[in-house]
Design a binder for these strands. Structure first.
Length: 608
RNA sequence: CGGGGUGUAGCUCAGCCUGGUAGAGCGCUUGCUUUGGGAGCAAGAAGUCGUCAGUUCGAAUCUGGCCACCCCGACCA
């Protein structure tokens, strides 16, 4: 491809709205152009890269035995009602709109395709002989992201590879899951990404039912916990750590301290001259337990759940919701399913504590007579002589001790892990290796769904005995745009992008320094043609521009191999071969340069 | 959804406070010079100043509504 006949629009200016490196470079290199918030056009250079990512994904999916199909972007909303996800997705689900009764009013843009694939499975996967099977597509998704950001890292429209597997046993699902897991590793390796699979919030099956594939970079929105010895990796939404050891300090007598207007942890620790790690944070939540569906049809009443975490720790919503379910089940029966909690309003807190907001504590909480469940974080359960609120406006208590001063195990009290891990916590594997927190971009997610959708939609097959069984499912997603952006996040310098060979828009750039010099142009064109013939994606910079200008552009768009053809060097019978990632310049004959570029291009593709 | 900010040429921005016929740099077009790390000179093309209303003889500029975009937070199958 000749530059002058192609469409490349680079810019010297740094766009004002771009903060993430990938966003800035994708705009400067003219790979994408924003049309609206979270909505981008892929210009030719960017689209070439995206297509290469797509092709790698497709190859590895096929290698893993998955079968490609394509499902619609427009879905009837009824389908989403079947699985109750219209409510669950909320504003994320984009509706087409239109007047009542109009067909448009009953259409949504697909944010994912579990419902559509399950509808297909329900119709056609009727026999165990058809299982297992893995169907995938590469298709646009639409989500009403509240806040698109960081260029193509978080958008309202994006390209996703989504695969769905169907099985007749949990063992078969495990196998299918492992195949996808392995395929994902190959895909991200081939794309040149420094990735890490981490345990993610697990699905209905529990255990290791879900892994996210993360690219470690500060531009990411997720935080992952990795131990130094690499024996544990998890998203902080899920990460656990070794329990903290019991503090054995001698228990002192409780004292109340007048703390006028000192409400926050920072204020109180400064006032009491203690540290947040010696404080107990008392968080009051409300949540509605599942109606047990027994005698009465009365709607379940919201219950109060009090969570205790150390002053320097944050409560983890998922863990807390699960613990609330357990606490409820222990006291009232039920299946222990998690309960979605919300922070209590001011009135509830006042009623419970008898004090203004900011002075709650566990030891005198029962005196108001308002019933509540107590969930004590493991780190709190081992504290000694802690400071906390006194349930009395403008007073805190010091030397509060779990067990002695408030029950941590009982009919309405449990100890659980309900906090986020922090940097320095120890590996849950018992190795003693410290956990480090790193920011990361989620580029892929593999998930054991179980029968969540097949149950809801009645997707069954007949087993060997002719009995109807519910299909067991897995689902596996990859964000293609995110692969591109995170490849740039991980491979760039102050001059521009440094593409991995496998997903570079072109593999080789031939720079003709004096395009009006016949010999130079002829040589450059020959190199270009020979490489193209050999199947190497080659761009020939034939613009009549100054050398510096062209080199700056070359560094910016980051094509891995650069061959410079200039008048002076050509007089000595050589051209220059240079890698984007190195300052070294190799001066060799044009024919040798062709061979060199070929082997570099081929070598860069077989990293899998 | 809460808080903050910005809308003027394809891009980056000035002009607004103190109202009076639209500016610069980059990019683009033409010519000459230059030619190994984003060249110089000259001449050009290009903007309903986000939008609607109001104030005024007169609004990019003052006032109000709306819209869009960005950042922080909340949220994220």
């Amino acid at each position: 491809m000749r530059w002058t006949q192609y469409f490349i629009v680079t810019s010297k200016e740094t766009p004002k709205d771009a903060t993430a490196a990938s966003h800035r470079l994708m705009l400067r290199t003219g790979m994408v152009r924003q049309l609206a918030a979270g909505i981008y056009s892929y210009l030719p250079l960017g689209y070439r890269s995206l297509r290469k990512v797509e092709e790698i994904v497709r190859e590895e999916m096929q290698r893993a035995g998955a079968i490609e199909l394509m499902m619609p972007i427009l879905h009837p909303i009824d389908l989403w009602e079947e699985t109750n996800r219209v409510a669950a997705m909320g504003d994320v689900l984009l509706r087409l709109g239109g007047p009542e009764g109009d067909w448009r009013a009953s259409m949504v843009l697909g944010p994912t395709h579990e419902e559509v694939i399950t509808e297909i499975a329900r119709a056609y996967l009727k026999s165990y002989k058809q299982l297992p099977i893995n169907l995938y597509q590469i298709q646009l998704k639409f989500r009403g992201e509240a806040r698109p950001k960081s260029g193509v890292l978080r958008t309202r429209e994006f390209l996703m590879k989504d695969a769905y597997s169907f099985h007749d046993s949990v063992e078969s699902l495990d196998e299918g899951y492992q195949k996808m897991y392995d395929a994902y590793c190959r895909i991200f390796s081939r794309c040149g990404l420094p990735y890490a699979p981490v345990e993610a919030e697990s699905g209905p099956i529990g255990g290791d039912a879900s892994h996210e594939f993360m690219v470690l970079t500060d531009a990411g929105e997720d935080v992952v916990a990795l131990t130094e010895n690499k024996d544990y990796a998890a998203n902080t939404e899920r990460a656990v750590c070794a329990p903290l050891a019991q503090d054995n300090a001698e228990m002192k007598a409780i004292e109340e301290v007048h703390t006028p207007n000192q409400r926050t942890i920072d204020e109180v620790t400064a006032f009491l001259k203690t540290s947040p790690s010696q404080m107990i944070k008392t968080l009051v939540y409300t949540g509605t337990p599942p109606s047990t569906g027994k005698k009465t049809d009365a709607p379940a009443e919201p219950a109060i759940f009090v969570a205790l975490v150390r002053g320097d720790h944050d409560a983890n919503e998922n863990k807390l919701n699960r613990a609330a379910g357990k606490a409820w089940a222990a006291a009232s029966g039920g299946d222990g399913a998690s309960i979605s909690l919300e922070l209590a309003d001011e009135g509830t807190i006042k009623r419970l504590t008898g004090a203004d907001v900011g002075f709650a504590g566990p030891h005198t909480l029962g005196k108001s007579g308002v019933p509540y469940f107590l969930i004590v974080d493991q780190a709190v359960s081992v504290m000694r002589n802690a400071a906390t609120g006194a349930n009395k406006t403008d007073y805190h208590a010091v030397n509060v001790n779990p067990v002695r001063d408030f029950a941590i195990n009982g009919e309405r009290a449990i100890v659980a892990d309900i906090r986020n891990v922090v940097d320095g916590d120890l590996s849950p594997k018992g190795s003693g290796s410290p956990i480090r927190l790193r920011k990361a971009i989620e580029v892929g997610h593999v998930f054991k769904l179980g029968t969540k959708y097949s149950d809801a939609m009645g997707a069954t097959y007949l087993d060997k005995n002719g009995k109807a069984k519910t299909l067991i499912m897995g689902c596996y997603g990859i964000g293609l745009n995110r692969i591109m952006a995170s490849a740039i996040e991980s491979n760039h310098d102050e001059n521009g992008i440094m593409w991995p060979m496998s997903i570079a828009p072109f593999q080789v750039l031939v720079v003709a320094l004096d395009p009006r010099d016949d010999e130079v142009m002829q040589t450059a064109a020959n190199i270009h043609d020979a490489l193209e013939t050999a199947g190497v994606d080659t761009l020939l910079d034939d613009r009549d521009e100054r050398a510096g200008f062209k080199f700056k552009d070359a560094d910016l768009i980051g094509i891995p191999v650069r061959i410079t053809v200039g008048r002076k060097a050509l007089a000595d019978g050589v051209v220059e071969v240079k890698l984007r990632t190195s300052e070294d310049i190799e001066k060799i004959a044009p024919d040798a340069a062709i061979e060199r570029a070929k082997s570099l291009a081929y070598a860069g593709l077989v990293t899998a």
